[in-house]
Structure formats: C-alpha cells, structure tokens
C-alpha cells in the first residue's frame, strides 16, 4: 500500500490537536496530583489534604448525595428511555413528530431546564403545586426545592426529564439494527409483543444499555449545571454532590489544594468504575462470541 511509506506524515496531521490536549488536559492532570500533596505555599505535606477531605462530614454527605442522585437518575433514565425507545420503534401515525418532540428536553440548554423547572416548582405560583392541589394529591403547597427530604427526588425528576431522550435515541438506534427476519420468525412461532420485547429486544439492548449507563454515570458525576442553578447544593447541603463540593472548595473557600485532593479521589473512583465496566462488558462480549 502506498500509505505505509508516508507513516510520518500522520504525526504531522495529529500534532496540533494533541498539542492542545496535552496542554489543556495532560498538564492539568499532573498539576492536580502536585497540588493535592502540597499546601498553599507549595511545600510537600503528604496525605494531609486527603485525610482532611476524606474525614470531613461534608464529604460523606456529598458522597451519599451523589450516589443517591446519580444512581436514582440512571435507573429511572434507563427504564423510561428503554420504554420510549421501544415505543418510537413501533409504527404509528405521527411517529416522526413524536420523535422530534421527545428530543426537546435533550436539546434545551441545562440552565434553561433548571430555570424552567424551578419556576414550575415555585412554592406560591408554581404550576406543579397548583396542579397537584387541584387533583387533591397534596393538601397545601409543597417546598419542592427547600425541603430536606424532597430536594433530591425533585432534582432527579429534572435530570431524568433532561436525559431520558438520549437513552431513547440510543435504544431506538440499536433496535433498528435488529433484522426484520427475527421478528418474522418469532411471529410464525406465535410470539406476542411481550415475547418480542422479552426475548428479542431486551437481549439485543444489553450492550448498548451498558455503555449508555457508563456515559450517564460520567455525565452525572460531572453534572453541576442543574443542581447548581436550582439549589446551589442547598438546603443545608442536602443536594450537595461531589463536583459542587470541589467547586465550592476551590472557588468559594479558595482552597485549591484540598479541592485538588478531592478531585483526584473522584477521578480515581470514576476511573476504576470505567475499567471494571469495560472489562465486564468485554468478558460478556467474548462469551457471547464463543
């Protein structure tokens, strides 16, 4: 092949992009490690930042909140997204319009979703309190974003609303890859719609749902936008998740070193999860191929 002779030109083409990524990603990563083991004057202090961060009550609360918020969101997003994806794969009049409409939450900017839902959750004038009172679900107005018990579920609703269309889109794409002959064969055998879902669709969706949940996990653990814009982590840290804590530690308390220590811990945990998930899915993939 002609291409082999020109192997060195390949480096020339990828160099500018890697220069930018090296400066903007690799260097900051190394710097995070350095920051995490030094104090504000730059002298080495070993693991003190880590110990301080990991033993603080705020960190354990933020960890609990993160697991609650991200875990709850992912489960609901997967369920709703799969149902919606299967629905969008079926033939019905107006399917094109419904597909477009379902993309709206995903397209709407995160801050806009946050402000709109904050208005709908409004204590006095919010449509949600009004609607639920008219339906006699609640007897008086509820402070969705100010109650310690309700703030996390209320935020999960917004997150799920925003992200389930993405899951639906991925599920739809995977379903369209199923050959029609499979359904035809099943129908000859007298399969009902339930059988199709249970024995054709869901097994086929396993791989895509695994990678989608990994993406949702990463996005969720990065996702400051909705919570920060709606509650800022309040009331009394009840919706404080780890990335917001890192942000506050760094840019409200201006303790860059402790913020770096905490981000490093989060990075390592996330990296471990990615490695475990990828190796499990490869094993399953390998088993399926045998």
């Amino acid at each position: 092949m002609k291409r082999r002779r020109r192997w060195n030109q390949g480096y020339f083409f990828i160099f500018p992009a890697f220069l930018v990524l090296g400066v903007m990603v690799l260097y900051p990563l190394i710097d995070t490690v350095v920051l995490s083991v030094t104090d504000e004057n730059g002298s080495y202090i070993g693991s003190r930042n880590f110990v301080q961060m990991l033993t603080s009550r705020t960190t354990s609360l933020a960890t609990y909140n993160s697991i609650y918020y991200v875990g709850g969101s992912i489960i609901l997003e997967l369920i709703l997204g799969t149902v919606a994806g299967i629905l969008l794969d079926r033939h019905f009049v107006g399917r094109g319009i419904v597909r477009s409409i379902m993309l709206i939450p995903w397209v709407v900017p995160g801050t806009v979703a946050a402000t709109t839902w904050a208005w709908m959750y409004h204590f006095e004038f919010g449509i949600i309190n009004y609607g639920l009172q008219s339906l006699h679900v609640i007897s008086g107005p509820v402070g969705w974003l100010t109650s310690a018990e309700l703030v996390k579920p209320s935020l999960i609703v917004v997150e799920v609303w925003k992200m389930f269309p993405f899951v639906a889109l991925m599920v739809l794409a995977a379903l369209q890859g199923i050959p029609a002959s499979l359904y035809e064969a099943a129908r000859i055998d007298g399969a009902t719609f339930y059988h199709e879902v249970r024995y054709i669709m869901l097994p086929h969706l396993f791989g895509i749902l695994a990678s989608v949940s990994l993406l949702l996990l990463i996005w969720g653990l990065n996702g400051i936008t909705i919570i920060y814009a709606m509650t800022g982590g309040g009331p009394a840290n009840r919706s404080l998740i780890l990335p917001i804590q890192i942000f506050k530690e760094g840019f409200e308390s201006f303790d860059f070193n402790r913020a770096a220590a905490l981000s490093l811990v989060l990075f390592i945990v996330l990296f471990a999860v990615i490695v475990i998930q990828v190796s499990i899915s490869q094993k399953r993939h390998g088993a399926a191929n045998e």
């Binding site: 990463i218 990065n222 990335p243 890192i246 760094g250 981000s263 990075f267």
Partner: peptide
C-alpha cells in the same frame, strides 16, 4: 471521559 471538576483548578 475525564471529570470536568478534576481539571478546573489547574
């Protein structure tokens, strides 16, 4: 895949 929070400070 990098968490944004990790690189903000540096």
């Amino acid at each position: 895949l990098l968490p944004t929070a990790t690189v903000i400070v540096p």
